[in-house]
């Protein structure tokens, strides 16, 4: 089953890294550059997993997450938050937001895969 993964990050580089990391897996990656676009994409695409950056212009990840949780149709979507901030308070705060997991930047592609596989039944693509 092909899964849909929504990558919400203002950095095109990070979105590219996420897409590349998931290339070997049976999924389609949809991209959004901020929380506002991410919220619209979540409602439209109904992704199986959302990878959500915190610090973004227009609408940050925490605000987007809050809006997801207020929407009955979207609140069950698993979310992995990406953050450049590994401070105790930040980690403690985001852990309480009803997310599946979080990943501190910088990260290796394997760490991202490990967390994504733990969150949703992501399968490797069958060899051609």
């Amino acid at each position: 089953m092909t899964l849909k993964v929504l990558s919400v990050d203002d950095s095109r580089t990070i979105r590219l890294i996420v897409t590349r990391a998931l290339m070997e897996y049976d999924c389609v990656v949809i991209e959004a550059a901020n929380g506002e676009e991410g919220l619209a994409a979540a409602a439209r695409e109904k992704p199986d997993l959302i990878l959500l950056d915190i610090t973004m212009p227009v609408m940050d990840g925490v605000t987007m997450l809050g809006k997801l949780k207020e929407d009955d149709a979207l609140k069950q979507m698993p979310v992995i938050m990406l953050t450049a901030e590994s401070g105790r308070e930040n980690v403690s705060h985001i852990s309480k937001l009803g997310i599946q997991d979080y990943l501190v930047k910088p990260f290796r592609a394997e760490q991202l895969i490990e967390k994504a596989v733990r969150a949703v039944p992501l399968q490797k693509k069958a060899a051609a």
Binding site: S11, T13, I14, T55, P57, T83, A84, G87, E89, K105
Partner: peptide, 30 residues
């Protein structure tokens, strides 16, 4: 520019985290 921004963001994020852990709470810009 996008890559240098992201590297700077990660550096700043680490420093911010350390400052916050030491009791110097602060926010970081994009």
């Amino acid at each position: 520019h996008d890559v240098v921004s992201e590297v700077t963001n990660m550096l700043g994020g680490r420093l911010k985290s350390r400052l916050c852990d030491a009791g110097f709470r602060c926010a970081m810009s994009t």
